[in-house]
Design a protein around this nucleic acid. Structure first.
Lengths: 211, 211
DNA sequence: TATAAAAATATGACCGGTCGTATATATGCC
DNA sequence: GGCATATATACGACCGGTCATATTTTTATA
């Protein structure tokens, strides 16, 4: 067999670093997809396990409970968004306000492609279990906090560049932007239109926040 | 027995207008409470039925399905808010901006008393089932629409009174206020603080919207 | 008006299925 | 063979929904 060319050490590496964590990763990946589409209580473990072809009994090998799994899914979900926004902000060719506008424009584009389904997992879970699962509440708070801090960074830089007003704190503006975005995502879902989220960005980044 | 003093007609009235619709009303009432506290998929029919002591089989006498029930719960939930806001707006002694500020201040007070639990049923359900149940989506859209129109009315009047800026449309401001409020309610749940919703009102009604 | 037949309504046991979780067995590595 | 991990099976509880039966209300007959 093909694996015979590998010695024991590298075989174990393969199993430990690719296979085993891979299954965990797969579970989290599918967890993101399904929780985003159907919510926490609307998604059964079996559905997730079937999707990644992992036997039911194995779930508790990887996670303590569904609740703990949910908390990890939240963290796993936000990572790419943090990464993407960080990357955009590290681009020295664009001013900070343009970066934020471009970033949100990209999000809007993706949401439009996705038929206004899902929205933001953080927003959905804050509403569904934010006040019933302490574990998930903490995880959500953490994730939102990291994201908010990135927005603060961008807005602070935009203030220094003179494109965003300095008479309001970057923190307050970041919260306003984040909260309005979350609310607009909810509206998007029921209006089945990107109008709410487009208006959100226009009104704030293109209006209220302008220097 | 006490009821013997009533003739047939008034007895029937009693049964029809109090007892029977009362049970339907009770179901909706408890539906509001439980769906607000535990979400749609997090609440079983049995839990609602037990709370109002109505047998399982009777549920489908009153409602087509859990989904149809959920849609009606949404409508039943928003009614008092519409009523309260309408009453406030009909008060001729206060200017429209003060009315809005007082109305939201009252909401904030109530939410603080309630330990930041629940938030807004419309927001929670938009996130949880706004894109999976067409029936509820329509009901949510309707409810949000009615509420928004009331905010538009208030803001339009405030514009006419000169307390709110006229260079932005009342519609756009109403949407911004509503969406930010919804997002701030989500934040409230995970931060366990009224700070987000307080900031929302200060930033918009006390800042951005000011003439 | 008294009585019986019929129509309407109320009921809770029960349906197949799924929930999250526990445990006992099987499997693979030293 | 000893040990740790992975998996299958099973658990009791609960899910939304149905249905035959019991009860009540209405209608018809005398």
């Amino acid at each position: 067999m093909a694996l015979a060319i590998l010695d024991d050490r590298s075989y174990n590496e393969c199993m430990n670093k690719l296979d085993k964590p891979n299954k965990r990763e797969q579970l989290l990946e599918q967890g993101v997809n399904l929780l985003l589409a159907q919510g926490y209580h609307g998604t059964g473990l079996k559905e997730i396990l079937d999707a990644v072809k992992i036997p039911k009994g194995s779930f508790y090998q990887y996670f303590e409970s569904k609740e703990a799994f949910g908390a990890e899914v939240v963290t796993h979900y936000i990572e790419p968004f943090i990464q993407q926004l960080t990357d955009h902000l590290n681009n020295p060719e664009l001013d900070a306000l343009s970066v934020l506008q471009a970033y949100f424009a990209a999000l809007i584009h993706d949401l439009e492609q996705g038929d206004f389904k899902g929205g933001c997992l953080l927003g959905n879970l804050m509403g569904e279990i934010g006040d019933t699962s302490e574990l998930c509440r903490f995880s959500l708070k953490q994730a939102i906090g990291r994201y908010r801090d990135l927005l603060v960074l961008g807005l602070t830089r935009a203030q220094a560049e003179g494109s965003v007003r300095a008479d309001k704190s970057a923190e307050r503006m970041a919260d306003l932007l984040l909260n309005t975005w979350q609310g607009a995502l909810l509206r998007m879902k029921i209006e089945q239109s990107v109008m709410p989220i487009r208006a959100c960005c226009e009104d704030l980044l293109g209006g209220y926040f302008k220097a």
